[in-house]
Design a protein around this nucleic acid. Structure first.
Lengths: 221, 221
DNA sequence: GTCTATAATCCGATAGAC
DNA sequence: GTCTATCGGATTATAGAC
């Protein structure tokens, strides 16, 4: 089935070229001609495979977000739910969770543009943005806020949101800001040593944050 | 000078409308007709005042980044440099710095789109992006990394970068991700109680991070 | 300074050959 | 499945009236 294989190759080349260009210049700023030229394909084939530029964007977003929609993060939390039951095991849970979550965001082999493009789409209003938000942002924030509630018993929404942000924001910012990563490291890959350090700090900060939010009652001081 | 006043009013209306639209849909996706229509002005006047769409973008970026280019953050650090000399005063310095920096990012009265647009421009390659990076990102990261070096004596670039990220990333992410703020709070304004909590956590985390990076030698474990 | 009509360019989509 | 020529529409920029 050489024809089929070639067809898949064509689609993949279009998706990866389009995603990289979309993330850097914005979806509207990139022309189908430019995508065709840079991927070595032609304009007509975009409409044949994806029905047009909008269909190609859908395919690109599916590609960029697949590991965030297959439920693997939820499954990871379920598999380690036992560690949430005893406060003595909370730091161990946080270590494991940060390790898994930060790897998903920063070193899962996906191109750097994926996070940047998802972020870009989230900024605009409309149906695509709402879909991406529901399936990714909202489910992650909901999951981590649930972990916070289970660990602390604190029902305060803002406390949960703050704790979630202090846990994930260094990684999310790096995943979303591919330009800074390139400018700092000089490459398209975040150095492993940097990921290792940032995981360490995030784990310790998250553990400290638990205590602070529980004891200081930040909402009342 | 009614004519002059009107002219300034026209320019301001164009800048604010354009900035808001640029941030949400991407610079290329917004047409000069749309800017003219939504601001109540006309297309011709954009070219009269700004020389075209590119000139308008320059003006918008100047407006969005003015407090980051006037040296007030550097001046703030200079004025409190005494607190860096004695480790006993470091937490006090961090409290004051986080308070000042987070207010600059999150509640200085500037519209929410400013951070989002600056971030968008930083993602693309080219002269404008490099200029924004040098004048804003690089100067902030350099300033805070310098504070880290002065406090710890640690010359490691990655350690300084990690510490800087863990200090600023919650605020930067909120400043840059206006869509999340709107979705979480339901308004265009970040709730003061949320800013207060996030400042608190950031200060404590930064103080803890100092100790960790100094003692644990994260680069070697 | 402000506005409108128009010129020159470029885009997404498609028809139809191969 | 792949490619090219072309159509209709939209965009920026501008010329010129007021």
């Amino acid at each position: 089935m050489a024809a089929y294989a070639n067809s898949e190759h064509t689609k993949k080349a279009l998706i990866e070229t389009a995603g990289s260009l979309f993330a850097e210049y914005g979806v509207k700023a990139v022309t189908t001609r430019q995508i065709a030229k840079e991927s070595g394909e032609n304009i007509g084939i975009i409409h044949y495979h994806f029905g047009g530029k909008d269909g190609l964007l859908d395919a690109v977003l599916d590609y960029a977000s697949e590991e965030w929609r297959d439920g693997r993060l939820e499954r990871f939390v379920e598999e380690h739910a036992k560690l949430l039951e005893n406060p003595l095991w909370h730091v161990e849970f946080l270590e494991k969770f940060v390790d898994y979550f930060y790897d998903m965001l920063l070193s899962d082999g996906k191109p750097l543009w994926c996070g940047t493009l998802i972020f870009q789409i989230l900024q605009r209003e409309g149906e695509i943005s709402d879909r991406v938000y529901e399936r990714i942002s909202r489910s992650i924030i909901g999951l981590i806020s649930g972990i916070y509630r289970q660990m602390t018993g604190d029902k305060d929404t803002e406390n949960a949101y703050c704790w979630t942000m202090s846990l994930i924001s260094p990684a999310v910012l790096m995943a979303v800001d591919s330009a800074s990563v390139k400018r700092f490291s000089g490459t398209d890959k975040i150095p492993d040593s940097l990921i290792h350090k940032i995981k360490n700090i995030a784990t310790i900060n998250a553990a400290a944050g638990l205590t602070i939010l529980k004891t200081r009652k930040l909402n009342n001081d």
